[in-house]
Design a protein around this nucleic acid. Structure first.
Lengths: 216, 216
DNA sequence: ACCGGACAAAGCAGCGCCATATGTCCGGGA
DNA sequence: TCCCGGACATATGGCGCTGCTTTGTCCGGT
């Protein structure tokens, strides 16, 4: 965000990667989801800053004290929503990516986003799109870097180079994603996936229309 | 953004591409530059919001009325600074890019940024880094798209595909740039250029250390 | 093109007051 | 264990008010 107002906020720690679909006690997931959904719901109606936790509580049917045992504040809840979204993305990405030999099969990502356009609308309304992109950037950069380490061809790279390249790919992903969304999602998700995939593997060196079947 | 506070601001129109090094009447350039430099100067001393136009005026030795004939407000002046910077980048990029056959020879860009770390410090201090990246993204996306149209291999692409690809490359560029800066600029500018160049042309398909001499 | 001065309007700091929201704590119930 | 409901001290934010500062515009003059 532009927002600079969160120096000592949240965990923000590198807690990616290690995350087996934690079930987290059904009850907990239920209340957490209820709260998260309630917030997103309210974001359709009014700007983020105008929403009080009480309203979230009411809509979610959750008690005040319960809320604060799970989240530190309203902003934290929102971050949690975003993180869940990203988690879900990364999950489907890795799931479909392990079989294929691609760095990041993003078709699922684009497809999901296409469905979640509601969530997207919320993001722009709350002017949190920048935050989302930034967060996603870091998220996917880490994921890609990790995945890059598994690929033979990229094995010989030094750490720094791998890090730099990961940033590039993540940046390309997020920027194309935001472009795609803000332009009314032209073309199919599969097409975006194909473009991205091709760019990642061959660059413009192979950017022609002939070899169109590079799908997973 | 960061900042959301500029819906109907500035021209923001697609006024790239058509721009021969306009001389713009020496006098005009002089005063504009004086004002721009004065602002950057002041930004070293205090946060952006604490700067009054009067202070800029004093330091630049320019009259109030003159200021407003050139810029609509303080923010506009800042934007102009950024635009000049981008313009300069794009210029050196295209100049060196015409001879070589690369999409965007970014070595110059990274090198310039390395020198302009003062300007960068100003950007982060004013929390305008997000704006800068966003602006640069759009800027380079356009430049790349245009350049892509000149490259045989990318000729056959549809407009939409070219646009999407341009966004990807521009995003990769800006994100890697911001990563590079925020990590203390590890490695040389030439190395970053090489990485970017290689990625653009071959993707990870050729991401190994062996073929190191891809420099321009 | 630029200056210099004047001017209305907008902005903003400070201040006190009050309503509302926040975040914490505890006993009790599923 | 997880959640509820209520109580509580503290923070935050709006509102009215005042006065100073800044803003953005205009115009005659160089």
């Amino acid at each position: 965000m532009s927002g600079k107002t969160k120096p000592p906020s949240r965990k923000a720690a590198p807690k990616a990667s290690h995350k087996p679909p934690t079930k987290m006690d059904r009850r907990v997931r239920r209340t957490r989801d209820a709260l998260g959904d309630a917030l997103v719901d309210l974001m359709h109606e009014k700007p983020f800053t105008d929403i009080t936790v009480q309203q979230v509580l009411d809509r979610a049917g959750v008690s005040r004290s319960t809320f604060y045992t799970h989240f530190s504040d309203k902003d934290d809840l929102f971050l949690s929503d975003v993180e869940d979204f990203l988690e879900m993305m990364a999950f489907s990405l890795s799931r479909h990516g392990e079989k294929s030999n691609r760095v990041a099969p993003v078709r699922e990502l684009f497809a999901h986003v296409a469905e979640w356009h509601k969530f997207h609308a919320v993001l722009v309304a709350a002017d949190k799109m920048g935050d989302f992109l930034e967060m996603g950037q870091g998220y996917f950069a880490r994921a890609i870097e990790q995945r890059l380490a598994e690929i033979p061809r990229a094995r010989e790279l030094t750490c720094k180079r791998r890090a730099a390249i990961s940033q590039m790919f993540a940046g390309a992903l997020m920027s194309s994603l935001s472009w795609w969304i803000s332009h009314g999602m032209p073309g199919s998700a599969a097409e975006m996936d194909e473009l991205y995939h091709r760019m990642v593997w061959q660059g413009v060196g192979a950017t022609d229309n002939s070899r169109a079947s590079t799908g997973s």
